[in-house]
Amino acid sequence: MSNDLAPITPNSTLCQTLSCLQEKFVVDFANSIDVARDHIRVQRQRTGFFARMYDGFTGKGARRQTEINAGLVDGVEASLKWLTELTESMAQSNLAITQVNDRVSILSGSMVELSHYSVDTREQLKEMAYRLDKRMHDMTQEISRIDFIQKAKLNIDITFSKWEAGRFSVLSPAARCYAAMEELHWGSLGDYCRCLENPAHKRREFLQLVIDRSTKQLAVDAAVELQTPAEMATVWLAAPSISRSSNGIDMPQALSWLADQMTIDSTPFIYSAAHITKNLPSKVPLIAQARRIAEAMTHEIFPLETLDA
């Protein structure tokens, strides 16, 4: 079904609303480069949404038709070029860059054992590794500077004003909360909180702010009072009847893709908010107050251990 839908371009409303999509895209793109088989894995069943982004971001609008006959055509060489470009232009977060960097290291390692890659390609990869390393270094410096706090704050403000302005309104209240979390996770706040050099109390403070603002917005969205528990299934996870607009279908799909690494056991709240499941995960209560959801989601994205470490 998903492949029948239009490609998703960087300047689509969806990407404007969820700026984390492009960060995640770059990482996934990097992870899908298969050096051994000299192609990039874009499989429609597994990552339908990724395929749509791939088409939109790489300009391969007509990909759908050709791909059917040609199979997967994108070679490693071309892909690496794209990756370099994408990383430069789209990956803003330390999180994305770190992950791309990790992937590039692996690729470099694998490529050593393979003879069929040109010197150029090898050089290209080396160059990329170098640039990534430099960026990471610079960013780490930046993140631990005092003025980065402003960026983190801005990240929070922008995210919550999007939520408050109804830009996630095609989603269920819990999924809106998750969307906000991903924006923060891939945003400056995430970078700030993951940086262990930053003071733990400040990071806790930020997360508390996130919990509080999410709690309030969740309650407002569901029209439930703060202290009143409501049913998970019929209130917190109830999506508004899907609008005919592409956003109404795309955004839940995007969310589900964002959560593709989440497991039912370690991140049950996110799992249930991002994926359609028949039964709630056993760790998710059937009734909850807004705060409970906000807390659980915040800590699933920003585990307590990372704060205490």
Partner: peptide, 20 residues
Amino acid sequence: MHQLNIDTLRMEAKRQLAQL
């Protein structure tokens, strides 16, 4: 308003018992 019903609470109690 969202009215909690006793069956949901019963199921929730069962879930909690199993979790604990």
